[in-house]
Design a protein around this nucleic acid. Structure first.
Lengths: 271, 271
DNA sequence: CGATTACTTGAATTCACTCAATGGCGGTGG
DNA sequence: CCACCGCCATTGAGTGAATTCAAGTAATCG
């Protein structure tokens, strides 16, 4: 599949209009953002810790993760990125990249210049706020991860992570009947939850035996989301979805707001 | 001690000028931000999870922490806040507060209206960027916390936390000869590192016996920071300090940049 | 001075880890 | 088409780090 640059902007616009209704001029500015598409294999570093960033990128297809290595060589994943995410948006105003980002499945990535983005943010406060908000939601997810890893046992922790993943995928239309494409190894899940790969296998088995999940090679099914939420102590508030009322941040909002381009949604991510 | 509103703005200005050099107009806008000062006892909630925020606040004196409770009642602290921090800046563009913030020592707090802040950010892109950057650094710290809690053992984890605390305090001039005011209970430290209070006691003892730290009731001394850094696998890059070069984000920077008001620094926080 | 809170220490337990071996699946190449 | 290799997942056994429970000490405060 090929992905046109203009399609990229649709993704961004769609994502935000639930929160900020953008004017014609604003959406046009986003459309004009030059984007360069690239495809990655699994397990390829997209950006590396310590580098000085000139670009940022949007995930169009596939999953990626942010991670760091300890001096002992252990790996910790601190974020999972799904289509529609801008995993390294934080680099917009940070000089050095503080964590590496790697594709965990084959990925289609849209790169753009940070400088271009900074210019847009300077000119359009509302777009700036929309991007800013993205990074704030990411931080909120990180806070929940700290709680999850710090205070919940492996079983609960994994249930929580899977709930989060499902709900986020749902928000971009990648879940059907509680089932979604899930080509993520147990080793990756272990690195994301701070447990060992062996224990991950055992805990997943327990979740399976309790009927909370069904796993196949490439897919994961959640027959009863409510039960999984309960098992994972999952409360979706921290994801800050469905906050359309937040549009009120700019009460005297600009000119004519664009209507959503809805049909870009469903077909978008599915391969 | 009393803290004048104008003093608050000095704090902010000082903090940022190392990264963004602000124009007269911009510093004035910050000075004009109406601020309301308030004093809190230890262990008082300053903001509560679930509320809809209208204000944000700056820590002027004392320490605070962001936390959440699990359904079992366990507590996890996901951020420690020191003077100069704006702990809930994330609420600027999030509708609901996703974690509570509590004073862990007596605190002097400066409140301001989020609406006022949004207006400033709309008018001054560089101020917006400066605030934004604050939230990005907070997120970077959260990522490191995920690594710390997820992949390091208790001993290393605590050493790391103490290093971070020391380095951050150093940046606002609150450390003398490796010694700083540290009226934080072991229970709080335990909640911040995701271990039990009992184990915290044991691990601190080990750190003491290895000569890495000296504890007294209200103070903590680090005789050899390099050794503690090594023990904690601590690399300060993630704090994104000393990035003055980042001023280059706005190459065609505005009018005449203000000079630092240096003397506001040392006397500021000390009680 | 008694009450409360913070810290320490010991003992037993448990959750999760490491090490190690095995089984399954998918791709590759003879 | 089958044999082989590599990756991933599983399972068992033994270990270990951190937990809970419990008791006791030290410091602080009204």
């Amino acid at each position: 599949m090929d992905v046109s640059p203009s399609y990229l902007s649709l993704l961004l616009i769609r994502k935000w209009e639930s929160v900020f209704s953008l004017s014609e001029e604003e959406t046009q500015a986003i459309r004009d953002l030059p984007v360069h598409t690239m495809v990655f294999e699994s397990n390829q570093d997209i950006v590396r810790i310590g580098d000085c960033p000139l670009h940022s990128f949007l995930v169009l297809k596939g999953f990626a993760s942010s991670y760091k290595l300890t001096t002992v060589g252990d790996r910790q994943i601190m974020a999972l990125h799904i289509p529609g995410d801008i995993p390294d948006l934080q680099n917009l105003y940070l000089k050095r990249i503080d964590c590496s980002i790697v594709s965990i499945t084959p990925c289609t990535i849209g790169f753009f210049q940070l400088e271009d983005l900074r210019h847009i943010c300077e000119r359009f406060p509302r777009i700036s706020a929309a991007f800013w908000r993205e990074t704030l939601v990411d931080a909120s997810i990180l806070r929940e991860w700290v709680v999850n890893i710090g205070r919940r046992d492996a079983y609960t922790r994994i249930a929580h992570l899977l709930c989060e993943f499902l709900v986020r995928l749902q928000a971009v239309g990648l879940v059907e009947n509680g089932t979604f494409h899930f080509p993520i190894t147990q080793a990756n899940l272990a690195d994301a939850t701070g447990i060992s790969a062996v224990h991950m296998s055992r805990a997943l088995k327990a979740l399976r035996e309790n009927g909370l999940i069904q796993t196949s090679r490439m897919h994961l099914a959640v027959p009863d989301l409510e039960r999984l939420k309960e098992a994972g102590e999952f409360d979706p508030h921290y994801l800050h979805l469905e906050e359309n009322a937040a549009a009120g941040f700019f009460s005297a909002a600009g000119s004519k707001a664009t209507t959503v381009i809805d049909d870009c949604r469903a077909n978008a991510f599915r391969g």
